[in-house]
Design a protein around this nucleic acid. Sequence first.
DNA 1: TAGATCGTTAACCATTCGGTTAACCCCTTA
DNA 2: TAAGGGGTTAACCGAATGGTTAACGATCTA
Lengths: 197, 197
Amino acid sequence: MAETADRILQAADELFSLRGYAAVSARDIAERAGVNKALIFYYFESKEALFRRVLDQYYEGHVKALELPTEGSYRERLHTLIDHYLDFIEDNYRYLQLVQREIIEGSSRLPYIQQNVMTLYSRVRDLLGDLVPASGALDARQFFVSFSGLINTFYVNAPVLGELWAGQQMDAAQRLARREHLHWIVNTLLDRLESGK
Amino acid sequence: MAETADRILQAADELFSLRGYAAVSARDIAERAGVNKALIFYYFESKEALFRRVLDQYYEGHVKALELPTEGSYRERLHTLIDHYLDFIEDNYRYLQLVQREIIEGSSRLPYIQQNVMTLYSRVRDLLGDLVPASGALDARQFFVSFSGLINTFYVNAPVLGELWAGQQMDAAQRLARREHLHWIVNTLLDRLESGK
DNA sequence: TAGATCGTTAACCATTCGGTTAACCCCTTA
DNA sequence: TAAGGGGTTAACCGAATGGTTAACGATCTA
Protein backbone atom coordinates (compact mmCIF):
# COMPACT_ATOMS: atom_id res chain seq x y z
CA MET A 1 0.00 0.00 0.00
CA ALA A 2 1.03 3.58 -0.61
CA GLU A 3 -0.28 4.19 2.88
CA THR A 4 2.78 2.56 4.36
CA ALA A 5 5.15 4.77 2.36
CA ASP A 6 3.20 7.80 3.52
CA ARG A 7 3.46 6.81 7.14
CA ILE A 8 7.20 6.37 6.75
CA LEU A 9 7.49 9.77 5.09
CA GLN A 10 5.52 11.47 7.82
CA ALA A 11 7.45 9.80 10.62
CA ALA A 12 10.71 10.72 8.89
CA ASP A 13 9.55 14.29 8.50
CA GLU A 14 8.73 14.60 12.18
CA LEU A 15 11.92 12.99 13.41
CA PHE A 16 14.34 14.69 11.02
CA SER A 17 12.84 18.07 11.80
CA LEU A 18 13.00 17.37 15.49
CA ARG A 19 16.46 15.92 15.86
CA GLY A 20 18.31 16.30 12.58
CA TYR A 21 19.54 13.78 10.07
CA ALA A 22 22.40 12.15 11.95
CA ALA A 23 20.56 11.79 15.24
CA VAL A 24 17.69 9.83 13.72
CA SER A 25 18.08 6.15 12.91
CA ALA A 26 16.13 4.04 10.45
CA ARG A 27 14.90 2.06 13.44
CA ASP A 28 13.54 5.24 15.03
CA ILE A 29 11.61 6.05 11.89
CA ALA A 30 10.24 2.54 11.54
CA GLU A 31 9.13 2.49 15.15
CA ARG A 32 7.39 5.86 14.90
CA ALA A 33 5.69 4.82 11.68
CA GLY A 34 4.64 1.53 13.25
CA VAL A 35 6.27 -0.35 10.43
CA ASN A 36 8.98 -2.95 9.94
CA LYS A 37 12.40 -1.39 9.43
CA ALA A 38 13.01 -3.25 6.19
CA LEU A 39 10.05 -1.46 4.62
CA ILE A 40 11.96 1.81 4.75
CA PHE A 41 14.48 0.38 2.34
CA TYR A 42 11.76 -1.31 0.34
CA TYR A 43 10.01 2.01 -0.39
CA PHE A 44 13.03 4.29 -0.31
CA GLU A 45 16.48 3.64 -1.64
CA SER A 46 18.29 4.71 1.50
CA LYS A 47 18.02 6.88 4.57
CA GLU A 48 19.60 9.70 2.59
CA ALA A 49 17.04 9.34 -0.21
CA LEU A 50 14.23 9.39 2.34
CA PHE A 51 15.61 12.62 3.76
CA ARG A 52 15.67 14.20 0.30
CA ARG A 53 12.06 13.22 -0.27
CA VAL A 54 11.08 14.96 2.95
CA LEU A 55 12.84 18.13 1.83
CA ASP A 56 11.37 18.02 -1.67
CA GLN A 57 7.85 17.94 -0.30
CA TYR A 58 8.43 21.22 1.50
CA TYR A 59 10.20 22.97 -1.33
CA GLU A 60 7.10 22.66 -3.48
CA GLY A 61 5.00 24.54 -0.95
CA HIS A 62 7.69 27.11 -0.42
CA VAL A 63 7.85 28.15 -4.04
CA LYS A 64 4.10 28.68 -4.03
CA ALA A 65 4.28 30.84 -0.91
CA LEU A 66 6.67 33.19 -2.61
CA GLU A 67 4.23 34.28 -5.28
CA LEU A 68 4.14 38.04 -5.48
CA PRO A 69 0.84 39.84 -4.85
CA THR A 70 -0.11 42.18 -7.72
CA GLU A 71 -2.61 44.56 -6.18
CA GLY A 72 -2.23 47.58 -3.94
CA SER A 73 0.57 50.01 -3.13
CA TYR A 74 4.10 48.76 -2.70
CA ARG A 75 3.56 48.98 1.03
CA GLU A 76 0.41 46.89 0.92
CA ARG A 77 2.09 44.36 -1.33
CA LEU A 78 5.01 44.07 1.07
CA HIS A 79 2.66 43.44 3.97
CA THR A 80 0.79 40.86 1.92
CA LEU A 81 4.00 39.11 0.95
CA ILE A 82 5.02 38.93 4.59
CA ASP A 83 1.61 37.58 5.55
CA HIS A 84 1.78 34.89 2.89
CA TYR A 85 5.20 33.89 4.04
CA LEU A 86 4.02 33.77 7.65
CA ASP A 87 1.04 31.65 6.64
CA PHE A 88 3.34 29.21 4.94
CA ILE A 89 5.67 28.99 7.90
CA GLU A 90 2.87 28.50 10.39
CA ASP A 91 1.48 25.70 8.27
CA ASN A 92 4.91 24.17 7.74
CA TYR A 93 6.56 24.92 10.99
CA ARG A 94 9.19 22.23 10.64
CA TYR A 95 10.36 23.36 7.24
CA LEU A 96 12.20 26.37 8.60
CA GLN A 97 14.12 24.24 11.04
CA LEU A 98 15.05 21.78 8.33
CA VAL A 99 16.33 24.51 6.04
CA GLN A 100 18.11 26.26 8.87
CA ARG A 101 19.89 23.06 9.69
CA GLU A 102 20.88 22.53 6.07
CA ILE A 103 22.42 25.99 6.01
CA ILE A 104 24.36 25.55 9.21
CA GLU A 105 25.64 22.16 8.21
CA GLY A 106 26.68 23.38 4.78
CA SER A 107 24.74 20.66 3.03
CA SER A 108 25.08 19.84 -0.63
CA ARG A 109 21.62 21.29 -1.17
CA LEU A 110 22.83 24.78 -0.41
CA PRO A 111 22.73 26.07 -4.01
CA TYR A 112 19.08 25.08 -4.16
CA ILE A 113 18.35 27.08 -1.04
CA GLN A 114 20.35 30.02 -2.31
CA GLN A 115 18.25 30.09 -5.44
CA ASN A 116 15.14 30.23 -3.30
CA VAL A 117 16.60 33.05 -1.26
CA MET A 118 17.52 35.02 -4.38
CA THR A 119 13.99 34.68 -5.71
CA LEU A 120 12.54 36.09 -2.53
CA TYR A 121 15.16 38.81 -2.38
CA SER A 122 14.50 40.04 -5.89
CA ARG A 123 10.84 40.48 -4.98
CA VAL A 124 11.61 42.46 -1.87
CA ARG A 125 14.09 44.56 -3.83
CA ASP A 126 11.52 45.31 -6.51
CA LEU A 127 9.00 46.30 -3.87
CA LEU A 128 11.38 48.66 -2.12
CA GLY A 129 12.28 50.17 -5.50
CA ASP A 130 14.16 53.46 -5.30
CA LEU A 131 13.01 54.06 -1.75
CA VAL A 132 16.40 52.77 -0.66
CA PRO A 133 19.93 53.49 -1.94
CA ALA A 134 21.65 51.03 -4.29
CA SER A 135 24.32 50.15 -1.77
CA GLY A 136 25.46 50.73 1.78
CA ALA A 137 23.85 50.34 5.18
CA LEU A 138 20.34 51.04 3.91
CA ASP A 139 20.27 49.11 0.66
CA ALA A 140 17.65 46.51 -0.25
CA ARG A 141 19.92 43.63 0.69
CA GLN A 142 20.23 44.84 4.26
CA PHE A 143 16.49 45.20 4.59
CA PHE A 144 15.94 41.80 3.08
CA VAL A 145 18.27 40.21 5.61
CA SER A 146 16.55 42.15 8.36
CA PHE A 147 13.05 41.14 7.31
CA SER A 148 14.09 37.51 7.03
CA GLY A 149 15.64 37.59 10.46
CA LEU A 150 12.69 39.34 12.02
CA ILE A 151 10.31 36.74 10.67
CA ASN A 152 12.30 33.56 10.98
CA THR A 153 13.82 34.00 14.42
CA PHE A 154 10.51 33.66 16.19
CA TYR A 155 9.86 30.25 14.68
CA VAL A 156 13.38 28.88 14.49
CA ASN A 157 14.03 29.69 18.12
CA ALA A 158 10.58 28.85 19.39
CA PRO A 159 11.86 25.99 21.59
CA VAL A 160 13.96 28.43 23.56
CA LEU A 161 11.76 31.51 23.43
CA GLY A 162 8.82 29.78 25.05
CA GLU A 163 10.27 30.69 28.43
CA LEU A 164 9.72 34.36 27.62
CA TRP A 165 6.02 33.73 27.52
CA ALA A 166 6.06 31.91 30.83
CA GLY A 167 6.60 28.54 29.25
CA GLN A 168 3.32 28.50 27.40
CA GLN A 169 3.13 26.60 24.19
CA MET A 170 3.22 28.90 21.18
CA ASP A 171 -0.45 29.46 20.54
CA ALA A 172 -2.56 31.37 18.06
CA ALA A 173 -2.66 34.49 20.20
CA GLN A 174 1.10 34.64 20.37
CA ARG A 175 1.49 34.16 16.65
CA LEU A 176 -0.99 36.94 16.07
CA ALA A 177 0.85 39.30 18.40
CA ARG A 178 4.08 38.51 16.60
CA ARG A 179 2.41 39.25 13.28
CA GLU A 180 1.17 42.59 14.55
CA HIS A 181 4.61 43.39 15.86
CA LEU A 182 6.23 42.64 12.52
CA HIS A 183 3.80 44.81 10.59
CA TRP A 184 4.35 47.61 13.08
CA ILE A 185 8.10 47.41 12.55
CA VAL A 186 7.78 47.32 8.78
CA ASN A 187 5.51 50.35 8.82
CA THR A 188 7.87 52.22 11.12
CA LEU A 189 10.83 51.53 8.88
CA LEU A 190 8.94 52.46 5.71
CA ASP A 191 7.70 55.68 7.29
CA ARG A 192 11.22 56.74 8.08
CA LEU A 193 12.46 55.77 4.63
CA GLU A 194 9.66 57.69 2.96
CA SER A 195 10.36 60.77 5.06
CA GLY A 196 13.75 60.84 3.36
CA LYS A 197 15.80 60.12 6.45
CA MET B 1 50.43 17.34 29.39
CA ALA B 2 47.60 19.85 29.42
CA GLU B 3 48.55 20.40 25.80
CA THR B 4 46.87 17.17 24.82
CA ALA B 5 43.60 18.13 26.48
CA ASP B 6 43.73 21.46 24.71
CA ARG B 7 44.21 19.85 21.34
CA ILE B 8 41.23 17.61 21.98
CA LEU B 9 39.13 20.57 23.02
CA GLN B 10 40.04 22.55 19.92
CA ALA B 11 39.42 19.64 17.58
CA ALA B 12 36.08 19.02 19.28
CA ASP B 13 35.15 22.67 18.94
CA GLU B 14 35.88 22.70 15.23
CA LEU B 15 34.08 19.46 14.47
CA PHE B 16 31.02 20.04 16.65
CA SER B 17 30.56 23.51 15.18
CA LEU B 18 30.95 22.17 11.69
CA ARG B 19 28.79 19.07 11.80
CA GLY B 20 26.88 19.02 15.06
CA TYR B 21 27.01 16.73 18.04
CA ALA B 22 25.52 13.52 16.67
CA ALA B 23 27.43 13.59 13.40
CA VAL B 24 30.83 13.71 15.08
CA SER B 25 32.36 10.58 16.59
CA ALA B 26 34.99 10.31 19.29
CA ARG B 27 37.26 8.77 16.65
CA ASP B 28 36.82 11.83 14.43
CA ILE B 29 37.88 14.09 17.27
CA ALA B 30 40.87 11.96 18.17
CA GLU B 31 42.02 11.84 14.58
CA ARG B 32 41.75 15.59 14.12
CA ALA B 33 43.57 16.20 17.38
CA GLY B 34 46.25 13.70 16.38
CA VAL B 35 45.70 11.78 19.59
CA ASN B 36 44.72 8.30 20.71
CA LYS B 37 40.99 7.91 21.09
CA ALA B 38 41.26 6.64 24.65
CA LEU B 39 42.76 9.95 25.70
CA ILE B 40 39.46 11.65 25.07
CA PHE B 41 37.93 9.58 27.84
CA TYR B 42 41.03 9.97 29.95
CA TYR B 43 40.79 13.76 29.96
CA PHE B 44 37.03 14.07 29.64
CA GLU B 45 34.38 11.94 31.22
CA SER B 46 32.43 11.33 28.05
CA LYS B 47 31.68 12.73 24.62
CA GLU B 48 28.79 14.59 26.18
CA ALA B 49 31.05 16.11 28.86
CA LEU B 50 33.51 17.17 26.17
CA PHE B 51 30.73 18.91 24.30
CA ARG B 52 29.73 20.76 27.44
CA ARG B 53 33.28 21.92 27.93
CA VAL B 54 33.30 23.32 24.41
CA LEU B 55 30.07 25.17 25.19
CA ASP B 56 31.38 26.36 28.53
CA GLN B 57 34.42 27.95 26.96
CA TYR B 58 32.21 30.07 24.75
CA TYR B 59 29.70 30.75 27.46
CA GLU B 60 32.27 32.61 29.55
CA GLY B 61 32.91 35.02 26.70
CA HIS B 62 29.22 35.28 26.07
CA VAL B 63 28.39 36.31 29.62
CA LYS B 64 31.08 38.97 29.47
CA ALA B 65 29.71 40.27 26.20
CA LEU B 66 26.33 40.69 27.84
CA GLU B 67 27.56 42.95 30.61
CA LEU B 68 25.35 45.99 30.80
CA PRO B 69 27.09 49.28 30.10
CA THR B 70 26.48 51.71 32.96
CA GLU B 71 27.05 55.07 31.31
CA GLY B 72 24.91 57.14 29.00
CA SER B 73 21.22 57.29 28.20
CA TYR B 74 19.21 54.11 27.84
CA ARG B 75 19.49 54.53 24.09
CA GLU B 76 23.27 54.79 24.20
CA ARG B 77 23.46 51.81 26.51
CA LEU B 78 21.33 49.75 24.14
CA HIS B 79 23.59 50.62 21.22
CA THR B 80 26.63 49.76 23.28
CA LEU B 81 25.12 46.42 24.31
CA ILE B 82 24.44 45.59 20.69
CA ASP B 83 27.97 46.54 19.71
CA HIS B 84 29.44 44.35 22.43
CA TYR B 85 27.31 41.46 21.34
CA LEU B 86 28.34 41.96 17.72
CA ASP B 87 32.00 42.07 18.73
CA PHE B 88 31.60 38.81 20.55
CA ILE B 89 29.86 37.10 17.66
CA GLU B 90 32.41 38.26 15.13
CA ASP B 91 35.18 36.90 17.31
CA ASN B 92 33.35 33.64 18.03
CA TYR B 93 31.62 32.99 14.78
CA ARG B 94 31.18 29.26 15.42
CA TYR B 95 29.47 29.72 18.74
CA LEU B 96 26.32 31.06 17.19
CA GLN B 97 26.04 28.10 14.83
CA LEU B 98 26.64 25.70 17.69
CA VAL B 99 23.92 27.21 19.79
CA GLN B 100 21.55 27.52 16.86
CA ARG B 101 21.98 23.87 16.06
CA GLU B 102 21.37 22.87 19.65
CA ILE B 103 18.13 24.81 19.67
CA ILE B 104 16.88 23.33 16.44
CA GLU B 105 17.74 19.81 17.49
CA GLY B 106 16.06 20.24 20.86
CA SER B 107 19.14 19.00 22.64
CA SER B 108 19.24 18.08 26.28
CA ARG B 109 21.46 21.13 26.80
CA LEU B 110 18.51 23.39 26.03
CA PRO B 111 17.79 24.58 29.59
CA TYR B 112 21.37 25.81 29.74
CA ILE B 113 20.81 27.93 26.65
CA GLN B 114 17.46 29.17 27.88
CA GLN B 115 19.11 30.51 30.97
CA ASN B 116 21.48 32.47 28.78
CA VAL B 117 18.63 33.86 26.75
CA MET B 118 16.75 34.96 29.83
CA THR B 119 19.79 36.83 31.11
CA LEU B 120 20.09 38.77 27.90
CA TYR B 121 16.36 39.39 27.76
CA SER B 122 16.17 40.81 31.25
CA ARG B 123 18.82 43.35 30.30
CA VAL B 124 17.02 44.44 27.18
CA ARG B 125 13.78 44.66 29.13
CA ASP B 126 15.39 46.83 31.77
CA LEU B 127 16.79 49.10 29.09
CA LEU B 128 13.47 49.52 27.34
CA GLY B 129 11.84 50.22 30.70
CA ASP B 130 8.39 51.75 30.46
CA LEU B 131 8.94 52.89 26.91
CA VAL B 132 7.00 49.80 25.87
CA PRO B 133 3.75 48.28 27.15
CA ALA B 134 3.86 45.32 29.52
CA SER B 135 2.23 42.98 27.02
CA GLY B 136 1.00 42.72 23.47
CA ALA B 137 2.53 43.34 20.07
CA LEU B 138 4.91 46.02 21.31
CA ASP B 139 6.13 44.55 24.60
CA ALA B 140 9.76 44.05 25.53
CA ARG B 141 9.69 40.37 24.63
CA GLN B 142 8.71 41.13 21.05
CA PHE B 143 11.49 43.65 20.70
CA PHE B 144 13.96 41.28 22.26
CA VAL B 145 13.06 38.58 19.75
CA SER B 146 13.30 41.14 16.97
CA PHE B 147 16.70 42.44 18.02
CA SER B 148 18.04 38.91 18.36
CA GLY B 149 16.76 37.98 14.94
CA LEU B 150 18.09 41.13 13.33
CA ILE B 151 21.55 40.50 14.71
CA ASN B 152 21.86 36.75 14.49
CA THR B 153 20.41 36.13 11.06
CA PHE B 154 23.26 37.79 9.28
CA TYR B 155 25.80 35.47 10.85
CA VAL B 156 23.81 32.26 11.09
CA ASN B 157 22.82 32.48 7.45
CA ALA B 158 26.10 33.83 6.16
CA PRO B 159 26.75 30.73 4.01
CA VAL B 160 23.61 31.44 2.03
CA LEU B 161 23.55 35.23 2.10
CA GLY B 162 26.96 35.60 0.47
CA GLU B 163 25.25 35.44 -2.92
CA LEU B 164 23.49 38.73 -2.16
CA TRP B 165 26.84 40.45 -2.08
CA ALA B 166 27.93 38.93 -5.39
CA GLY B 167 29.49 35.93 -3.75
CA GLN B 168 32.13 37.88 -1.89
CA GLN B 169 33.40 36.47 1.34
CA MET B 170 31.98 38.28 4.33
CA ASP B 171 34.59 40.95 4.95
CA ALA B 172 35.11 43.78 7.38
CA ALA B 173 33.35 46.31 5.18
CA GLN B 174 30.23 44.15 5.02
CA ARG B 175 30.19 43.62 8.74
CA LEU B 176 30.51 47.35 9.26
CA ALA B 177 27.65 48.09 6.88
CA ARG B 178 25.51 45.57 8.72
CA ARG B 179 26.36 47.21 12.02
CA GLU B 180 25.36 50.61 10.68
CA HIS B 181 22.14 49.17 9.38
CA LEU B 182 21.28 47.65 12.75
CA HIS B 183 21.90 50.89 14.61
CA TRP B 184 19.79 52.75 12.09
CA ILE B 185 16.91 50.35 12.64
CA VAL B 186 17.19 50.52 16.41
CA ASN B 187 17.18 54.31 16.30
CA THR B 188 14.19 54.35 14.01
CA LEU B 189 12.23 52.04 16.27
CA LEU B 190 13.17 53.96 19.41
CA ASP B 191 12.22 57.27 17.77
CA ARG B 192 8.78 55.98 17.00
CA LEU B 193 8.37 54.51 20.47
CA GLU B 194 9.43 57.77 22.10
CA SER B 195 7.04 59.75 19.95
CA GLY B 196 4.28 57.80 21.69
CA LYS B 197 3.06 56.00 18.57
C1' DT C 1 67.10 0.52 42.86
C1' DA C 2 62.41 -0.28 43.72
C1' DG C 3 58.25 1.30 43.53
C1' DA C 4 54.60 4.73 42.33
C1' DT C 5 52.46 7.90 39.28
C1' DC C 6 51.09 9.77 34.87
C1' DG C 7 50.32 9.94 29.94
C1' DT C 8 49.69 6.89 26.23
C1' DT C 9 48.62 2.84 23.55
C1' DA C 10 46.34 -1.15 21.05
C1' DA C 11 43.08 -4.28 21.71
C1' DC C 12 38.79 -5.13 23.14
C1' DC C 13 33.64 -4.71 24.58
C1' DA C 14 28.55 -4.48 23.98
C1' DT C 15 25.51 -1.90 21.37
C1' DT C 16 23.69 0.36 17.48
C1' DC C 17 24.13 1.70 12.86
C1' DG C 18 22.39 1.38 7.66
C1' DG C 19 21.24 -2.05 4.81
C1' DT C 20 20.26 -7.09 2.98
C1' DT C 21 18.19 -11.56 2.67
C1' DA C 22 15.13 -15.38 2.31
C1' DA C 23 11.08 -16.86 3.57
C1' DC C 24 6.25 -15.95 4.15
C1' DC C 25 1.37 -14.13 3.73
C1' DC C 26 -2.25 -12.82 0.97
C1' DC C 27 -4.48 -11.33 -3.04
C1' DT C 28 -4.92 -11.52 -8.05
C1' DT C 29 -5.12 -13.87 -12.40
C1' DA C 30 -5.49 -17.81 -15.40
C1' DT D 1 -6.05 -24.75 -8.09
C1' DA D 2 -1.79 -23.36 -9.37
C1' DA D 3 1.33 -19.74 -10.29
C1' DG D 4 2.75 -15.18 -9.59
C1' DG D 5 3.81 -11.07 -7.31
C1' DG D 6 3.65 -7.25 -4.14
C1' DG D 7 3.82 -6.25 0.84
C1' DT D 8 5.76 -7.74 5.13
C1' DT D 9 8.64 -10.09 8.38
C1' DA D 10 12.55 -11.75 11.56
C1' DA D 11 16.97 -12.73 11.31
C1' DC D 12 21.12 -11.44 9.87
C1' DC D 13 25.47 -8.68 8.13
C1' DG D 14 29.76 -5.88 8.46
C1' DA D 15 30.91 -1.48 10.01
C1' DA D 16 30.93 2.11 13.27
C1' DT D 17 29.53 3.79 17.72
C1' DG D 18 30.85 5.33 22.85
C1' DG D 19 33.46 3.60 26.24
C1' DT D 20 36.86 0.25 28.92
C1' DT D 21 40.94 -2.27 30.01
C1' DA D 22 45.47 -3.94 30.84
C1' DA D 23 49.82 -3.20 29.75
C1' DC D 24 53.67 -0.08 28.71
C1' DG D 25 57.25 3.32 28.89
C1' DA D 26 58.90 7.55 31.06
C1' DT D 27 59.68 10.40 34.95
C1' DC D 28 59.85 11.21 39.74
C1' DT D 29 60.58 9.85 44.60
C1' DA D 30 61.94 6.88 48.59
